[in-house]
Amino acid sequence: MAELIGRRAVFHSEADFQHAFAWTLHSMQPSTEVRLEVRQAGGERVDLLCCGPQGRTAIEFKYFTSRWDGTDPVIGEQFRLREHAADDLARRNFIFDVARLEGLCAADPTLTNGFAIILTNHQPLWAPPSRPRLTRDQHFRIHEGRTLTGTLRWGTEGSYYMDNERNLIGRYTLAWNDYTRLEGVNGQFRWLGVGIRVPR
């Protein structure tokens, strides 16, 4: 991600982010084979599979944006980012990635580890709630300093939606990183990465 910052300040879409990340990784480590949208046993696809001398790593990406219009100062390209709605679904889907990567790593002995990444300019994703209150996605919060572990349930007491429940094997304390700060409203981008390594 540190290398990518010097090449691209912003991306048109999640697919654009994935491609730029894969391109940068391969240019840094030519011995690492990178493949996008790799089908796994059971029919699931992994956004990026990296194969090198150290083993195989599965990476999942999320790119959630607030509206921003401007120019990438690195490459001089014009961007018009759209507003994504539903913060709760962005949080949920990121944690779904973490849980899915745990499952893939546990099931496939050739998969050394996994990594879930979200890049966003949507400040409520990394900021702790301004006041404590019960929400249906309270177990799925991903703000700075939060620890994810154990059973995460969607809903409130007596009204849980079981299809969204996830059980995490690992324990992950979340630390957000600055990506870039561009001109205008919603110009600050930050990223969060969660590394997954399941005990054998």
Rank of each mutant, 00 (worst) to 15 (best):
E165R: 15
E83G: 01
L192D: 00
H12S: 09
D72L: 04
E60D: 04
V34Y: 03
A107F: 01
D87K: 11
A41Y: 05
R197F: 03
R45Y: 04
G158M: 05
L25A: 10
L134I: 08
L174W: 09
I196E: 08
L104D: 02
V194M: 07
L104H: 13
D163A: 13
A20W: 12
P124Y: 04
R146I: 09
R146D: 02
Q78L: 08
Q54A: 10
P53I: 08
A99M: 01
L125I: 13
R133V: 07
Y179D: 02
E14M: 07
R91F: 00
A58F: 06
R35H: 12
T151K: 11
G150S: 11
E3D: 12
R7Y: 02
R67S: 09
R8E: 06
I169S: 05
P53W: 15
R153P: 02
T120S: 15
R91E: 09
T180W: 06
Y63S: 10
F115Y: 08
A85R: 15
L89G: 05
I5N: 00
L48R: 01
K62P: 12
G187T: 10
R82M: 06
Y63A: 09
W191Y: 15
H19E: 06
T156W: 10
L168S: 08
E14S: 08
A175K: 12
L182C: 12
E183L: 15
R82C: 04
R100H: 05
C50L: 14
R200P: 11
F17E: 02
V46L: 07
T57G: 00
T120I: 13
C50A: 15
D88I: 00
I169Y: 00
R35V: 07
D87E: 15
A175L: 06
A90S: 05
F11W: 05
G184P: 14
A15E: 13
A106H: 04
R181A: 13
N177Y: 03
S130K: 12
I196T: 14
P199K: 00
Y160N: 03
Y172G: 05
L192G: 04
S13W: 00
D163G: 10
L89K: 12
F79T: 01
F189Y: 09
F115H: 14
F64I: 08
F94H: 14
T65Q: 13
G195P: 01
Q54K: 12
E157L: 12
Q138N: 11
T173V: 05
T151F: 07
L81Q: 05
R35I: 04
E44N: 11
I5P: 00
P199Q: 02
L119I: 10
N93R: 08
N167S: 09
G150M: 04
G114Y: 06
N177S: 13
V46C: 10
D97Y: 07
C50S: 13
A2C: 11
Q40C: 04
C105M: 06
G193I: 10
V74W: 01
I142Y: 05
R56E: 11
H122G: 02
E157F: 03
L104I: 06
A41M: 04
N167V: 14
S159K: 14
F11K: 01
A15G: 07
I59N: 05
N177C: 07
Q40N: 09
I196N: 09
Q18S: 13
G114W: 05
T24P: 08
T71R: 14
V194N: 00
Y179Q: 06
L152Q: 14
L182R: 06
G158T: 11
G55Q: 11
A116Q: 01
A90G: 08
L182Y: 03
